Computed example of a mutant assay.
Amino acid sequence: MSFAEVHRENYRRQAKAYGIDADFVSAMVDGFYTKVRNDPELGPIFDQVIEDQWEPHLIKMKQFWRAIALKTGEYEGRPMPAHLKLKNVTKAHFAKWLQLFDENLEEIAPSPEAKAFFNDRARNIARSLMMGMFYDPDEELGVQA
């Protein structure tokens, strides 16, 4: 067994110990996006982009989170280019997104470890997307453009 295979198997074993499996990931994604769609701030933003394609979006998000949590390797998307197209999204929207994500986990996570596992990864994803969408090196250096 290769190092990568051993790592993947250890990761899956840890996820299982936390109560994370494909069924939980599916319930987590469904619950979270129900919250997003019902949110007066985020709902319209998502609906404008996703329109009537919610089912394919949910399938893709379940693949994404299974790939992260269970190392399935099934997600082949590129989140950054998709998010760069969202011109009406602000930094504040990410805080709301994380709040809803946390609320959802608080309600359904099978263990505190599962909640921490997903919250940690969601925050890393938010940081990465925000860096790609909003980072301005001139602002960082205090330089006027």
Rank of each mutant, 00 (worst) to 15 (best):
P79D: 11
F64L: 13
L58C: 08
R8S: 13
W97M: 13
Q14V: 12
V143F: 09
M1K: 11
E41W: 00
A126W: 01
K16H: 05
P79A: 14
F94P: 06
V49T: 04
I45Y: 02
Y33H: 00
P110D: 14
D120H: 11
S26N: 07
T90E: 09
T72E: 06
A17F: 00
K71G: 08
G142L: 10
A82L: 15
S2E: 11
R12M: 07
E9I: 13
W54Y: 10
V143P: 04
N124P: 04
N119S: 11
G77M: 09
L84Q: 07
R123I: 04
Q99V: 03
P40N: 01
A116V: 06
D39F: 00
E9A: 15
E51L: 12
I20C: 09
K87C: 08
L70H: 07
A109F: 02
A95V: 05
K87G: 05
H57F: 10
A95P: 03
W54V: 05
R37V: 00
A126R: 01
R127S: 02
Y33E: 03
D47E: 14
N38G: 15
R78E: 12
E55D: 14
L129T: 02
D39V: 02
E41S: 04
L86Q: 06
A109Q: 11
L98T: 05
D23K: 13
I59R: 06
A126I: 00
M1H: 10
D47K: 01
F94H: 06
S2C: 07
E113H: 12
F118Y: 14
